[in-house]
């Protein structure tokens, strides 16, 4: 009341730059995507309105369910293992010794090199004729597996690509979370008689909740939408074993030149993302111990 000048307009003025960016880079492309998804767009030429036909076509496609399941299983496996690896690294490297600083840098390397380069590197490593797999196989005196030509191995290779690259991201996020826990609390718990497990379970884990949630959401969205891994590493194969929704969007849009269907599929993937995040939030709310996050 004392400050009569502060009107809602002032609030909007401060929000404006963020809103402009949001509209320009999120809502406008989304709206355009929605518009294209209900039109026939072939060879980059906008055609007639055709209602939900694009959606019907892609959803009824023989490979849609496969791509959906591939995306789900890849996301879940990569998410779980990347998060676990990142968390382990964060806990292990949450010290400032010279060794752990060096190791943090090493772990960060895959994250800072370009995704494309990283996936090409792994493709080379996994390939039988040029890579490191045969070297390892020779070491154990077994025939080297054809990693990228075997459906299960190829999925494992793609998950490995995810872990290799993105554990560093999880580690950085969780390390920041760990660093924000006052050391006094840990000391207090130690004096209170708590062992390492109890400190982790009762102090560190609850206080890391925000960092954990953000990390999980960021990783999940990344894995559900990532194109580089399947495109570069596996090409979606073999036998469509790594044919994710994102890869299909790319193929339909830029190899079949059907942007209408590609956009319809992108909208479906967007809804899938939203559903996944809502699910994750619900799981978190359920397990929350009465504290405000």
């Amino acid at each position: 009341m004392m400050d009569g000048q502060r009107t809602p307009f002032q609030a909007y003025r401060y929000l404006l730059p963020a809103l402009v960016l949001e509209v320009g880079f999120v809502f406008a492309p989304l709206a355009l995507s929605l518009y294209y998804s209900v039109h026939r767009v072939r060879y980059y030429q906008l055609g007639d309105f055709n209602g939900l036909q694009n959606y019907i076509d892609i959803l009824s496609h023989r490979l849609f369910l496969n791509s959906f399941l591939v995306t789900c299983s890849f996301s879940l496996m990569a998410l779980t293992l990347t998060f676990a690896t990142g968390f382990g690294l964060a806990l292990f490297l949450n010290r400032d010794t010279a060794g752990s600083i060096l190791l943090r840098t090493v772990v960060l390397l895959p994250y800072v090199i370009a995704m494309l380069v990283g996936s090409m590197l792994l493709k080379w490593i996994f390939s039988t004729d040029a890579g490191l797999v045969p070297l390892a196989a020779a070491w154990f005196d077994v025939a080297s597996p054809t990693v990228l030509a075997d459906p299960e191995y190829a999925m494992a290779a793609m998950v490995a690509n995810g872990i290799w690259r993105d554990s560093a991201f999880a580690m950085v996020m969780l390390l920041a979370g760990l660093r924000s826990i006052p050391p006094n609390l840990i000391q207090a718990a130690r004096i209170d008689g708590a062992g390492s497990y109890m400190i982790f379970r009762r102090i560190i884990l609850p206080l890391l909740r925000p960092a954990i949630l953000i990390t999980l959401i960021r990783l999940l969205l990344h894995f559900a939408n990532v194109l580089t891994f399947p495109l570069i590493l596996t090409g979606g194969g073999p036998n469509n074993a790594t044919d994710t929704l994102a890869l299909r969007i790319f193929r339909i849009g830029f190899e079949d030149f059907d942007l209408g269907k590609a956009n319809a599929m992108a909208i479906v993937l967007c809804l899938f993302n939203i559903a996944a995040v809502v699910l994750l939030l619900a799981v978190f709310r359920k397990t929350r111990g009465g504290q405000s996050l």
């Binding site: 990228l148 030509a149 090409g235 073999p238 036998n239």
Partner: peptide
């Protein structure tokens, strides 16, 4: 090789060269 399922034209030519 069964790995043919993972090879592109470029991969095969590199192997031919090698």
């Amino acid at each position: 090789s069964q790995e043919s399922f993972a090879y592109t034209l470029d991969d095969v030519i590199e192997q031919f060269i090698a």
